[in-house]
Simulated assay, not measured.
Amino acid sequence: MRCALAVFGLLTLSPFAVAAEAAADIHGTPAAPVADAGSAPSPKRPSQPQKLVEPHLHVSRSGNAKAPRIALTFDACMGKADERILTTLVHESVPATIFVTARWLRSNPQAVAIFLQNPDLFEVENHGENHVPAVDLPVAIYGIAAAGSPEAVGREVARGAEAMLAAGLPAPRWFRGATARYDLSAIHEIRAMGYRIAGYSLNGDDGSLLGAQATERRIASAKDGDVVISHINQPSHAAGEGIARAILALKARGVEFVKLADANAAGDDDTTNERSPAL
């Protein structure tokens, strides 16, 4: 799952396509690791090719049909903030978890200020430095080259956290990689850096490529315990209008909106379970 930048004319790659230039900004020399995130040991390279996984994530259910519990999560990959979504969240006092890249942070200081002014509403988490898939094998995902090595995965994660701290945001506790796909050794590495990895259970906007009505219907159909993934970085796409309308529809249903930190979020593929400090 990933952001799509139609403005860059790459829709032919896949319904989830992101501009391949997302990987072109990677700097050559690694920065010092973030102290809060810790440093990850380099896992052994697998002797056989590993499958990629796209982990699921749910929050604890409310058990109340009239007040289902749902977590809205948004990826801010690159580009600008979608004011339609951000304004709706603030005006309606709806909490959400936002995954930001270093690239997006540099372009959106006004949105960052809104996050800082509303810590009760926004949990801001790590989406990496340059929106490069956090896979330590030399593969392409939806046409985008993955990080390709344990060192590059660690750099993508650590530099995303560094950018958040530099912007005055709290140290992140969750990581979601570009495309939301990983190999198992990369999951181990990211977990060893101190992060939980955020999957999802409902794809709200197909990488911001759905139309407004389809996006609204899909998100408005969320069930108790769902973690919805959508995008908040495509203000020119119709999907943002549908997201804003879906937020209002969910609120009218009596939904209890939660952030990941507040609802015992649990994922598969060893992405969220408690781990020994030694791991």
Results as ranks from 00 to 15, higher is better:
residue 59 V to L: 05
residue 67 A to E: 13
residue 49 P to E: 04
residue 47 S to I: 13
residue 93 S to D: 15
residue 46 P to R: 01
residue 66 K to I: 07
residue 62 S to I: 09
residue 70 I to C: 03
residue 86 L to N: 03
residue 77 C to A: 15
residue 75 D to Q: 00
residue 70 I to H: 06
residue 90 V to L: 12
residue 78 M to L: 12
residue 53 V to H: 10
residue 71 A to E: 02
residue 53 V to W: 09
residue 58 H to F: 11
residue 58 H to C: 04
residue 67 A to I: 11
residue 58 H to L: 08
residue 64 N to M: 10
residue 59 V to D: 02
residue 66 K to F: 10
residue 92 E to H: 13
residue 93 S to R: 15
residue 65 A to K: 14
residue 72 L to A: 01
residue 79 G to M: 03
residue 87 T to Q: 13
residue 46 P to A: 05
residue 48 Q to S: 12
residue 55 P to M: 01
residue 79 G to T: 01
residue 67 A to W: 08
residue 77 C to L: 01
residue 58 H to D: 12
residue 48 Q to L: 10
residue 86 L to F: 03
residue 49 P to R: 08
residue 93 S to A: 15
residue 62 S to E: 09
residue 45 R to Y: 12
residue 52 L to I: 06
residue 47 S to A: 12
residue 70 I to Q: 06
residue 67 A to T: 14
residue 90 V to K: 07
residue 95 P to Q: 10
residue 52 L to T: 08
residue 94 V to N: 05
residue 65 A to T: 14
residue 71 A to L: 10
residue 88 T to P: 02
residue 63 G to D: 05
residue 63 G to Y: 07
residue 94 V to T: 14
residue 65 A to D: 13
residue 87 T to P: 04
residue 92 E to Y: 08
residue 83 E to G: 10
residue 56 H to M: 08
residue 45 R to I: 06
residue 95 P to I: 07
residue 87 T to G: 15
residue 47 S to W: 11
residue 88 T to K: 11
residue 48 Q to V: 12
